[in-house]
């Protein structure tokens, strides 16, 4: 049973990492990276490493996604200032 769930998770990770690489919009790349982190944290849980899974979910899927979005906002603000 758990092998099928893990297979689905791995396929989702592969798809979202492809989205993260090939997407034209940076925002969707960041969201896809957050999804990759979420799937990886699920895989850690299946591999019986719950402490690593908690860390990955809190830092990879939560904080670093937010920090990337904030950084993207700041970078775009700089671009518009130069155009003016």
């Amino acid at each position: 049973m758990i092998i099928y769930v893990a297979t689905v998770v791995v396929i989702a990770i592969i798809i979202s990492s492809l989205i993260a690489v090939f997407s034209k919009k940076l925002l969707s790349s960041i969201i896809a990276m957050g999804l990759v982190s979420l799937g990886v944290s699920g895989l850690f849980f299946f591999l019986q490493a719950p402490d690593v899974a908690i860390t990955e979910a809190a830092i990879g899927a939560g904080l670093s996604t937010a920090i990337f979005v904030i950084a993207l906002k700041r970078v775009k603000k700089g671009e518009t200032k130069d155009e003016e």
Binding site: P50, D51, I54, T55, A58, I59, G62, L63, A66
Partner: peptide, 17 residues
């Protein structure tokens, strides 16, 4: 329990976010 200082601190920081 599994977990510890690093995940706990990250959870608190996301609450502040």
């Amino acid at each position: 329990t599994p977990g510890g200082g690093f995940p706990g601190g990250a959870v608190i920081a996301s609450g502040i976010l």
